Simulated scan of single mutants.
Amino acid sequence: MEVHNKTILLVGATGGIGAAIAKQLDQLNAHLLLVGRSEQALRQLSAGLSHRHILLLADINSAAGRQQIVTQCQQQAIDIYINAAGVMDFQLLAQQESVKIEQMINTNLLSPMMLCQLLLPLLTQKSSAAIVNIGSTFGSIGHPGFAVYCASKFGLRGFSEALRRELAGSGVQVLYFSPRATRTALNTHAVKQLNEALGNRSDSPEQVAKMLIASLKANNGQQFMGWPEKIFVRLNALCPNLVHKALVKKLPIIFRYANENTG
């Protein structure tokens, strides 16, 4: 789907990936509705864009916030909804705070699903529209230390796949886009050290944004970033026990940095 001159709702616009997407869409002359929870961050983002866009201070995790977004979308007649909202907490489940668990499930899965439902009447009126959910490699591979985060992204992937099939007879395409490790503020010092210790490669937010927009233009239903991550996703689907054994061998390293994250 082409993005030039399209009206695009971008939720989570002030995050690392969200801001990079906003800047690249701005250069492609898209009309943006930028949603975030920090007025200061929204204004800073807007100041770096070449065009004037609509800023909306709203919390996707509240019913009132979602209704704010829908009301604004009704006025703007959006063509594309990009969900870039997301939170992560690297922690062993036995030590994880319940508030962190609820936050990840709500922000990464439940709230995007509920907003999608509210936006469907608007999007299905269009001859061509799109929903883009940003997931993670951990939405396909269960990784120790990220059990709840994985659950939320596994759920988002399943939701996107089912919705894509449900809307196959309409003009609405649904894309699930899966980055690998990305260099954003979402990563704590412990996560960065873990990635280095495990030899995990990472991408910049700009690289992720570029690939996402290319996937949207190409109408890709699912897109996974990174090598060898793409192979691991396929391997985990076909031979999960092989990936299980490989990750179990790395448990001492994972435990070390998870315990550091607790402190």
Rank of each mutant, 00 (worst) to 15 (best):
L122T: 05
N259T: 07
V87D: 05
M104Y: 09
M225L: 15
E39H: 08
N133A: 12
S204K: 10
L118G: 13
N5C: 02
A64C: 01
Q207Y: 02
I60N: 04
V70G: 07
E97K: 15
A85H: 07
P205M: 08
G18L: 09
L115N: 03
Q27V: 02
Q75Y: 10
N187G: 00
K249M: 12
I60M: 07
E260G: 00
A41E: 13
V243K: 02
K210D: 03
A258E: 02
L118F: 02
Q207A: 13
F90E: 00
H31K: 15
V99H: 10
G263M: 11
G158M: 05
S178F: 06
I141E: 01
I69W: 08
V3P: 04
F224H: 10
S50C: 07
N83F: 05
L93E: 00
R234S: 11
A246Q: 14
A209N: 06
A13I: 11
K23E: 11
I60A: 04
K210R: 14
F159H: 01
I21T: 04
K245D: 08
P144E: 10
H244N: 15
V35L: 02
A237T: 08
C239R: 08
L115I: 07
A151V: 09
G36R: 09
T124L: 12
R180Y: 09
I80C: 04
I69T: 03
I60K: 04
L175F: 05
G171E: 11
F224L: 12
R165N: 13
I78Y: 07
A58T: 10
N219L: 06
A190Q: 08
V3A: 01
T137H: 05
G139D: 04
A19K: 02
A197T: 06
A58M: 09
C116K: 01
A47W: 06
A181W: 05
E161Y: 11
K230D: 01
S127W: 03
K192N: 15
E260Y: 06
N259I: 00
G142W: 04
I141D: 00
T188M: 01
R43D: 06
A218N: 14
L235C: 04
L247H: 00
A85K: 09
Q68L: 10
Y149E: 06
V148R: 08
A246K: 14
T14Y: 11
L45G: 01
V243T: 12
S160A: 15
V11R: 00
L25A: 08
L122M: 10
T188S: 15
A22R: 05
I105A: 11
V208F: 06
